[in-house]
């Protein structure tokens, strides 16, 4: 082949590579455009009351019923359900995850680490719909049984059970991120602590964890973002009733649960119901983006040794 041809092919080849890289940016732009476009359409739709009114109603009403005849479009019940479940999930995931990560990175023998890791990886690969099944038909009956001793009736759909399941579900993800940042702490810091007479436990909790705190925080923020965006577990086990409550034993609906509920029906393109899932989705996108950016910020603040 002549050298000119080769050069031309090389240019084309590099161009092709760049093009495929740019497609990922295109995807992001498309996501943002679609969400913004249909959210704007939602707010100017006459059934929501037109532009300024609908935005005010979105943030001031306390009920979310865009699919009913009497339409209320307050986002708070959905946000409340989303954060309630995410909060329960984090309450499970933070202590357990920290315990496991510290143990695996500082205490556990190498062989145990190597044999546990694949199982944690697998836990991460279990389909979320399977977790949903387990939350509804495995965890909820157990919770009902336990709470009966205290004379409390738990409903078949509640926030607690998907919250617990979500907590365990995101645990391998957060634990491995936390472990990575613990391992990023250089050995000499540990040795300095030991030489001053600190025990292993003191070293772990007073030297290693503080040294890795930005990374740990970033890991949990990413975990929270996952819990907020998770769909199937909450769609199956949390109920389909937008409920402005902080009681974890009542059914709630999350943003993702609402999107699934509406998408299951047949929606005409451009109808108010159709647009409402984009408005809700836009809210979800903003919330998770906020958490992701915060995580990114803390990650960038991570000390480099």
């Amino acid at each position: 082949m002549r050298i000119e041809y080769k050069k031309k092919i090389d240019y084309l080849f590099k161009g092709f590579l760049l093009l495929t890289g740019l497609i990922s940016i295109l995807v992001t732009i498309a996501i943002v455009i679609v969400l913004i476009d249909d959210t704007v359409n939602f707010f100017i739709h006459p059934e929501g009351g037109g532009f300024p009114t609908s935005v005010i109603r979105f943030f001031s009403e306390t009920e979310w019923t865009p699919t009913f005849v009497n339409k209320k479009i307050g986002i708070w019940p959905l946000l409340c359900g989303t954060f309630l479940i995410a909060f329960i999930a984090m309450a499970i995931s933070i202590p357990l995850g920290l315990l496991i990560a510290v143990y695996l990175s500082e205490f556990a023998p190498h062989s145990l680490r190597e044999s546990v890791k694949p199982w944690l990886d697998f836990l991460e690969a279990v389909p979320t719909v399977v977790y949903g099944y387990f939350a509804l038909l495995g965890v909820t009956p157990i919770l009902q049984w336990i709470f009966r001793f205290f004379g409390i009736e738990v409903q078949g759909m509640n926030a607690l059970s998907p919250g617990i399941v979500l907590g365990v579900m995101i645990l391998p993800f957060t634990a491995s991120l936390v472990e990575d940042s613990l391992r990023g702490v250089p050995q000499y810091l540990r040795e300095a602590a030991y030489s001053l007479g600190a025990t292993k436990l003191q070293t772990a909790f007073q030297v290693v964890i503080p040294a890795a705190r930005s990374g740990i925080l970033a890991a949990y923020l990413l975990g929270a973002s996952r819990a907020i965006g998770e769909t199937m577990v909450v769609a199956i086990a949390a109920g389909m009733y937008p409920n402005l409550t902080l009681n974890p034993l009542e059914p709630v609906q999350t943003i993702t649960g609402y999107i699934v509920q509406v998408a299951l029906g047949d929606l005409p393109f451009g109808s108010f119901e159709y647009l409402s899932i984009f408005a809700a989705g836009f809210m979800l996108f903003i919330v998770t983006l906020f958490f992701n950016l915060l995580a990114l910020y803390f990650k960038s603040k991570m000390e480099r040794y």
């Binding site: 995807v27 498309a30 996501i31 679609v34 969400l35 476009d37 249909d38 990413l222 973002s225 996952r226 907020i228 965006g229 998770e230 769909t231 993702t256 999107i259 699934v260 998408a263 899932i277 984009f278 989705g281 979800l284 996108f285 998770t288 992701n292 995580a295």
Partner: peptide
């Protein structure tokens, strides 16, 4: 880090 359901909305819209 974008929730997978957002990809669903993208696919539905586009």
């Amino acid at each position: 880090a974008v929730p997978s359901i957002i990809y669903g909305l993208l696919a539905l819209g586009i």
